[in-house]
Nucleic acid binder design. Structure first.
Lengths: 144, 144
DNA sequence: TACTATTAGTTGCTAAAGCAACTATTGCTA
DNA sequence: TAGCAATAGTTGCTTTAGCAACTAATAGTA
């Protein structure tokens, strides 16, 4: 652990922790040749969960900018993991769905993710989880 | 608060919270015409603290990639907030220092940052801070 | 001393974040 | 119904993240 890590305020600590997690996830994906990034995984996970959803909705549930979602989806479409399908009711809307290949990818990567979550959470309790959740929620909601 | 925020695991929650903080900081900087990004601020803060430091060291204390530091410093040099100064002892090394303008920028922005930290932490206790610190440290160190 | 390994830093690349400006469509209202 | 506002999505731009490959310099070793 770096010296700064123990002596600095929460923004920095959050940032450092998140980067470390993200890095670990990415390296694990790469080591298992999953051919996917961490954020691509997050979108796949949500597409699996929500089945059929627009860019806008997907951006909302992932806390991502719609432009970011639009471009990540572009990559997933190129990889044939996602299909776009225009809505006949509202021609502005585009529904997103996992392809069969996309669902397979989800099921293939999912165990790795569960394993990594367990690793990160080792030595912590249910209470810690509740505390972390509560504290982050308060901070989140404190921000105007 | 979005519905996902309350029901999802820690990685997502950390990411969402951090993005929200970062966004708030950036908007505040912009609103006060500080002409600076959040990460540029983090480097300035550390340059102010460490006085004279190499790219490598700065990367270490900020948990940033050295390439990222190199490029952010590039921008700060262009803005005349930082100077690079080659080491005569080891000609591979380059020392970084705030200029007078850089120190002024630090003192100018600092109060805003303190204010924002207070805002984010509202309604939480010293104990919460200790818990957050402890939990994030454990997660950080759990990661191989 | 010559050769090799290590270290400091930069550059090129791809991905993600977020703002602004844009197109296309739909909804609202005078 | 015509005109304007709002909504969905894309594209352009700048910034940050991090890997790989590179140059230059120093350190270590046969």
């Amino acid at each position: 652990m770096t010296d700064t890590f123990v002596s600095n305020p929460s923004f920095f600590k959050l940032d450092a922790t998140l980067k470390r997690i993200r890095n670990y996830w990415q390296k694990t994906f790469d080591a298992h040749k999953k051919d996917i990034t961490v954020d691509q995984w997050l979108l796949i996970e949500n597409l699996y969960k929500h089945k059929k959803i627009t860019h806008n909705e997907l951006a909302r549930v992932t806390s991502k900018d719609i432009t970011t979602v639009s471009r990540i989806i572009e990559l997933l479409v190129k990889k044939e993991l996602v299909v776009r399908e225009g809505s006949p009711q509202d021609r502005r809307k585009v529904f997103l769905q996992l392809t069969a290949k996309g669902s397979e990818k989800y099921k293939d990567v999912r165990p790795l993710v569960l394993e990594m979550r367990k690793t990160g959470w080792a030595g912590l309790t249910e209470n810690d989880y509740a505390d972390l959740t509560r504290i982050l929620d308060v901070i989140y909601n404190n921000i105007p």
